[in-house]
């Protein structure tokens, strides 16, 4: 079953006819040729296919493409300004946070979503922010350091930072 759909990816408007059983990951990679978004597990366990949809980090392998109708998608290809890397990308390169690089787009998109939501995360908040992302080559220390470095260099939005997740759900009286 095919349906026509429209959506915006990295600022470009697309009208495509997609099989309703295609995932957003498949359409990004195979229909639009945006192969920067990676497939690792294809079942939402690894975070490799993370993209940002209407400002929120989502797993494109568990999203039906058809449900991205009318949405705005940001993928790894949409971050840099030409050859000028986004501060998160720059920090990943400089901190040695990239080895095989296969999980990198997913980590960078998770980091982007995290810093959009919380420009000044603590170390624990960063770790929680990339909890869905699996890396096997780099470990996580240099990735966390890269996100810390990016947070420092990024222009800070004037918006008051949101309270991030607390480490422990302190019980309470209401």
């Amino acid at each position: 079953m095919k349906q026509e759909m429209e959506f915006t990816v990295n600022g470009e408007h697309y009208t495509v006819r997609v099989d309703t059983r295609r995932t957003l990951l498949e359409v990004l990679r195979e229909t639009l040729g945006l192969t920067g978004t990676k497939e690792m597990c294809n079942k939402g366990d690894c975070g490799g296919c993370t993209v940002i949809m209407d400002g929120k980090p989502i797993l494109s392998c568990l999203t039906l493409a058809i449900e991205a109708q009318g949405k705005e998608i940001l993928t790894i290809e949409g971050l840099a300004d030409g050859y000028t890397l986004h501060p998160i990308q720059q920090a990943f390169v400089e901190s040695g946070a990239i080895q095989c690089g296969y999980c990198t787009p997913g980590f960078i998109m998770s980091a982007k979503a995290l810093l959009d939501r919380n420009p000044h995360p603590t170390e624990d908040q960063i770790k929680e922010g990339i909890a869905n992302n699996i890396c096997r080559c780099t470990g996580y220390v240099q990735i966390v350091e890269a996100i810390q470095a990016a947070a420092r260099t990024m222009k800070r939005p004037v918006k008051r930072p949101m309270k991030g997740p607390s480490r422990k759900p302190g019980g309470g009286k209401q």
């Binding site: 920067g36 890397l85 990308q89 390169v93 400089e94 990239i98 080895q99 690089g101 990198t104």
Partner: peptide, 13 residues
């Protein structure tokens, strides 16, 4: 820094 990291950061590797 590792050669090739920029391509990987851009999603172009």
């Amino acid at each position: 820094p590792r050669i090739g990291s920029v391509e990987k950061a851009l999603g172009r590797a």
